[in-house]
Amino acid sequence: MKRISALLAALVLASPILSNGATTEPPMGKLLYLPPQPVNVPANMVAVPVAIWSNGQVFMQWMFVPAQALANMPALAPPVAAAVTAPASAATTAVSTATSAAAAMPAAATAAATAVTSAPSAAATAAVNMAGKLTGSTATHARSMAATCYSCHGTDGKSHSAIPPLAGMDKSYFIEQMKDFKSGKREATVMHQHAKGYTDEEFAQMADVFAAVKP
């Protein structure tokens, strides 16, 4: 059975930090991956990170809730709303020193944790530490996303055809190219269409996978 609640989300995010604030290897790493924030949030709705408790495991998910309903939850409303309605500014800059993989996930995590703990700096530290090393679902999401590229670019990005290889590609170069495909700055026959399907954070996650492959 699944129990879903925003309150639980905040508790799950915060509890390991509260119990073991100094950890460098977050024990809840694999539970904590928060998928990229949805882009198309319906009018009058707010995307809220929630924890889904299923068969003894916890994973994070976004849920759309009416903005009004959120406003009626005084304990959570201000920080969570801040995290999800202003991702490009306040929430993201809160962890601007983290790697780009961190941008989507710990921003909301930090804010949510802040809602129930008075130790925001510990939360931020844990979030940054976590981002440094992909674990659990984050790693498998990156692995799975990168694998969508392999269909054309070869397994692990090792291409043996007219399609360019991605194996061993420099991380920042990969990210830049994908952003250029997305914006139309770099012309393409097909890559502009694919690039638009992924977030910039996901470009960074895929870039990590390819940079780690020996060409």
């Binding site: 495991q57 994973f59 998910q61 999401h141 969508t148 097909v190």
Partner: peptide
């Protein structure tokens, strides 16, 4: 014994 990636992406070309 781990939770699968909750938000998979697939692509078609």
């Amino acid at each position: 014994g781990r939770e699968p990636n909750p938000v998979p992406i697939v692509a078609n070309t």
